[in-house]
Write a protein that binds this DNA or RNA. Structure first.
Lengths: 187, 187
DNA sequence: GGGTCTAGACTGACTGGTCAGTACAAAAAG
DNA sequence: CTTTTTGTACTGACCAGTCAGTCTAGACCC
């Protein structure tokens, strides 16, 4: 059950669809309004600015991802937890491809006014990976770095998957990512 | 030794510096001209359009990365080749941080007119990883997917490193990434 | 019932600024 | 004399954001 419904919802949906195709800067508020089937004024009635609109879009999206990772980890530990989180993240990517593309394109940016918030939520998602890694590797001091590495692996792997071999199943891709992390490439 | 010198070079340098801070759309041609210490007319004399300017910037950058990976792989094979490539890629990222940030921010976009060229060069870089993986895992059909996964791991790991623990050495980070791929997280 | 008022959602023409790209004449540079 | 660079002024498109006004549903009164 979506927390946002009605006009707000259709504006957010339209914004996501358009931005995943044309980028945020390539999407005008007029475009969003037309796609959502409302007047431009309504967009501004519901969101004070373009920045705020896309801020909410991305924050909601990454927040939901963090929540998914949290749930996937629940009750598990070690390699099992990591595997579950990777599968869950791939499922999120597959289930909301436009969002995944948008996140990938925007997460490294440093030029937006709301980047601070985005970084916060991003680190929240990363923290889930960090916690699991710390658990199994308490002696290492680079758990955060490794979490970033794993996150990047899954994100880029996931996008690669959807772009170039969408016929594969989540299961296969999950297995492929785990294989990549299994040491059999570096042994 | 740069293939491009003089006015062209200083325009490219200025464009890179500004765009890594403010994004491509956040960088005006006027800005670039001022930073390069050159008249706006000269920018357009040397580059027919803003798109062409940034196209060359990114294509050169990723092309150079692909070339670096090629060289790192030379004469090696298997895990040794992969390790060398990861280290080399991290060195490129560390040695040209503005470029790395720009590449990370732009590589997933699909909204620019020259995206096709960018994708081509990107796949060229990925192909280096793919080749090494195919070599050691000839029976697997997901070498490209794994290459994307490794590329993402190194790219995101590298950016994480520079952003949040720049005090670490390339050696340390390289070791950390290899540890992540070593199977000790998933065993 | 009918009349009046109010509040919130929504509208779309309009404004003001920004910026890519142009024009051009004159000056360096080689 | 050809190529490159300069400086400045200009144009035209585009677009974020505004605002005066419309629409609707419900509340309150007689």
């Amino acid at each position: 059950m979506p927390r946002v419904t009605g006009t707000k919802r259709s504006i957010l949906d339209a914004a996501l669809e358009l931005a995943s195709l044309n980028g945020i800067t390539g999407t005008t508020m007029e475009d969003v309004a037309v796609r959502a089937g409302v007047a431009k004024g309504s967009v501004y009635y519901n969101f004070s600015s373009k920045d705020k609109l896309f801020e909410q879009l991305l924050l909601d999206g990454i927040g939901a991802l963090a929540e998914t990772l949290r749930q996937a980890r629940e009750g598990k530990s070690g390699a099992g937890a990591l595997g579950a989180m990777i599968t869950a993240m791939l499922e999120v990517i597959a289930g909301n491809q436009p969002l995944a593309k948008l996140i990938a394109a925007e997460i490294f940016r440093t030029d937006r006014s709301w980047q601070t918030h985005l970084q916060t939520v991003r680190r929240e998602a990363l923290a889930e990976f960090t916690a699991v890694i710390r658990e199994t590797q308490p002696e290492r001091t680079d758990a955060e770095l490794m979490a970033g590495t794993v996150f990047g692996a899954v994100l880029v792997g996931g996008i690669e998957w959807l772009a170039f071999s969408p016929e594969r199943s989540v299961r296969e891709v999950s297995e492929s990512v785990l294989f990549t992390l299994s040491g059999r490439l570096t042994a």
